[in-house]
């Protein structure tokens, strides 16, 4: 990015640490720019406090996290899916968030664009969660497919300054964002604030603010959620997997169907937060079992159990040795367990 951005009039800065990176992209977004940062491992932990700041101030920005194994310094450049729950609950306090989880390089390209759009549209930080396996992979991207003239613009206010409420409660749940320097002199704070942007400790104002923050996401799930269904049509069994594990799952499904006659398919959330709960409930209805393979000790398993445990059996498959999950491992695990 340090090479490409200046060519396009964009700006790149290498901050002193990931806390600073996260802070500076929020500052840049307040100044009206689309902004992003990227990290892996410990860096994403350092960003958490300010991710919460972006949530509460409703400042759009994109955070790319290429996951690595282990807590702490862990397993640099080795794959893991250990940050799935951190992406949801990493910053302190109750909050909504959007997390997108692509599984191929071209999909990273498309989903990055979608992530920025979602972030601008709903005024929320979006985390693009990646697997190391895909982060270091090379695949073809069809750049021509992208409409270069289509660039999502955030909704900005058009009312006179004195009528502007930076955190107004309108029907969409998303207030217009006044970029700094446009004549709307207002206050931004990480304290819970009322419609005018100033801190409040009044329970009714706090309640209205917090609920709007959740509502703007909950009311727009149709737009935010995305997933892929693979060979699900006639399947009796289902794998729920995201990222690189879904690639192995697809291959395992080919083998299981072609060589062993097992009717199995895949449900792959592309948006993992908010979770695709209604889709899962729908797809689980006629399944005998759901397999949840993950490179962690059961992080996607939790929401899967929450929404589908009363519908069918759910079986985790966990691998945390710094290796990817291979298709043959899934084939034998599934054959043993049906």
């Amino acid at each position: 990015m340090s090479v490409e951005l200046p060519k396009l009039g964009g700006k790149f800065i290498q901050m002193e640490d990931e806390i600073g990176s996260m802070a500076s992209i929020i500052g840049a977004s307040i100044g009206g720019l689309k902004s992003m940062t990227a990290t892996s491992g410990p860096g994403i932990s350092l960003m958490q406090e300010n991710i919460g700041y972006a949530v509460i101030t409703e400042t759009p920005c994109l955070i790319v996290n290429v996951q690595r194994g282990g807590p702490s310094t862990g397993l640099p450049t080795m794959p893991s899916q250990g940050d799935i729950l951190q992406a949801r609950w990493g910053t302190h306090g109750d909050h909504p968030i959007i997390t997108i989880y692509p599984h191929t390089v071209p999909e990273i390209f498309e989903e990055t664009i979608r992530s920025v759009e979602l972030s601008e549209k709903y005024r929320i930080p979006v985390i693009l969660l990646l697997d190391e396996v895909i982060g270091h992979m090379r695949e073809k991207i069809d750049i021509e497919k992208v409409d270069k003239n289509k660039s999502f613009k955030r909704k900005t206010p058009d009312v006179p300054n004195e009528w502007f409420f930076p955190y107004e409660r309108n029907s969409s749940g998303v207030p217009a964002f006044a970029d700094f320097g446009e004549g709307y002199r207002y206050h931004i704070t990480g304290l819970v604030h009322d419609v005018d942007g100033f801190p409040t400790s009044k329970p009714d104002q706090i309640d209205a603010f917090m609920k709007r923050m959740f509502r703007k996401i909950d009311d727009n799930l149709d737009d935010i959620l995305d997933w892929e269904e693979y060979e699900l049509e006639d399947s009796e069994y289902m794998i729920l997997a995201a990222g690189c594990v879904a690639r192995s799952a697809k291959q395992a499904i080919r083998t299981l169907r072609d060589e062993h006659g097992i009717k199995i398919g895949l449900l792959r959330p592309k948006t993992i937060w908010p979770f695709i709960s209604s889709v899962l409930i729908d797809k689980a209805q006629d399944k005998k079992k759901i397999f949840v393979p993950e490179m962690n000790m059961g992080q996607l398993l939790l929401p899967t159990q929450r929404f589908a445990s009363s519908i069918c059996d759910i079986l985790p498959f966990n691998k945390i040795n710094g290796e990817a999950i291979y298709p043959h491992e899934l084939v034998s695990f599934i054959r043993r367990n049906i």
Partner: peptide
């Protein structure tokens, strides 16, 4: 005006 997080004002200001 921006009231940021503890210690980070300069980093926010850098982005702005």
């Amino acid at each position: 005006t921006i009231h940021t997080t503890h210690g980070r004002a300069l980093a926010f200001a850098t982005g702005l």
